[in-house]
Amino acid sequence: MFSGKVFGAVAGAAVLALSATGAFAQAKDKIKVGFIYVGPVGDFGWSHQHDQGRQAIEKAFPGKVTTTFVESVPEADSERAIEQLARTGHDLIFTTSFGFMEPTLKVAKKYPNIKFEHATGFKRAPNLSTYAAKFHEGRYITGVIAGKMTKSNTIGYVGAFPIPEVIAGINAFYLGAKSVNPDVKIKIVFANTWFDPAKEGDAAKALLDQGVDMLAQHTDSPAPIQAAEARGKFGFGQASDMERFAPKAQLTAITDNWDDYYVARAKAVLDGTWKSEDTWGGIDAHMVVMTPYKNMPDDVKKLAEETEAAIKTHKLNPFKCPVIGQDGKEIECKGNGALSDEQVLGMNFYVKGIEDKIPQ
């Protein structure tokens, strides 16, 4: 979900947090926290991981926090669900898909005394925070693995929608593969859904039919990696550990850890210290977690571990400059030796070497 973080003492990790003017807050003895999910909690991917974070809140504050959730909410119809939570006594509401951004902002303006948090968005208000994770860091690592292990030199990627978070992930995956295999090619199919196992599976099969032997995904169900296993190919879990669905195919999974963030934000409402912020944490902040590297040669595992360590310690940035666009022109480098956070969060181009075109 775009799709794509303040832990404080709870996580004890370095996290990028950009503060905005906070809404007036008072300490509370008890609070009610609500969640809006774009998919079912049983997707074993994106929504499942957010729900793990919801459960972490309940475990952290027994008797002080009650939580509710609404699952499988279409982005186009999300305002009604968000408003319903606002009207039913919730103190803090998390909306967890990019397409929920405008509806969340609209409802937040109507209820200034309620705290709202939107995952992967960029619009804030005094009572509305934003948060996301640097998923592209994990995708660079999976790209390195795919580049080393492919025998056909053709790797595949199932995307949900051509939004910046997904585009950045595709670019990072390809750049990781290209860093170890100059001959690698990537093929991309968009499923145009976050969660639809049939469509995701069809997209994966279309890629496999084109000769890919490494399959990454930015959709929410295990269908793509299951399709890879059925063909004797390899893939990567998305958002949560999908090894149970494809034990022979999964090389690793990029898992989202929301637990610490959700616990910290609920605590802030209880303490009366909540304020509107933007948080974007990666591997170093333990918001992006790689599952154990399996089904690969020892030298590839070692390289994956070294790449992860380099990203964690900021010795490696997936978008280190120069970054060359698909048109062969160098992208202006607005960060410190790498593309800036704003450039990554708003990425709307493919890098050089990707032959597919971004759907309009």
Score class of each variant (00 low, 15 high):
3 S>P: 09
6 V>W: 15
7 F>G: 10
9 A>P: 11
10 V>A: 06
15 V>W: 08
20 A>F: 14
21 T>V: 13
22 G>T: 11
23 A>W: 05
30 K>W: 00
43 D>N: 12
46 W>V: 09
50 H>T: 06
53 G>V: 04
57 I>M: 07
69 F>H: 14
74 P>K: 13
74 P>S: 12
79 E>Y: 04
79 E>N: 03
81 A>K: 04
82 I>K: 10
87 R>S: 14
89 G>I: 06
92 L>M: 08
93 I>D: 01
99 G>L: 09
102 E>R: 15
102 E>T: 14
107 V>F: 11
108 A>L: 07
109 K>S: 13
110 K>T: 11
114 I>W: 07
123 K>M: 13
125 A>G: 11
131 Y>I: 05
136 H>E: 14
138 G>H: 07
146 A>K: 02
153 N>A: 05
155 I>N: 00
164 P>W: 06
169 G>I: 05
175 L>M: 14
175 L>Q: 13
176 G>S: 05
184 V>R: 00
193 T>Q: 12
195 F>Y: 15
201 G>A: 03
208 L>D: 00
210 Q>S: 14
217 Q>A: 15
217 Q>G: 08
229 E>M: 11
232 G>W: 08
232 G>I: 04
232 G>P: 12
236 F>M: 01
237 G>W: 03
243 E>I: 11
247 P>V: 00
249 A>E: 02
254 I>A: 10
261 Y>R: 06
261 Y>N: 05
265 R>Q: 13
266 A>L: 02
266 A>H: 03
274 W>Q: 07
275 K>H: 12
275 K>A: 14
276 S>A: 15
278 D>R: 08
286 H>T: 12
295 N>S: 01
304 A>N: 03
304 A>I: 01
312 K>Y: 07
313 T>P: 10
314 H>T: 12
315 K>H: 13
323 V>S: 02
323 V>A: 00
327 D>L: 09
342 E>P: 02
344 V>R: 04
347 M>G: 03
350 Y>S: 08
352 K>V: 04
357 K>E: 13
357 K>V: 12
358 I>D: 11
359 P>M: 14
359 P>Q: 13
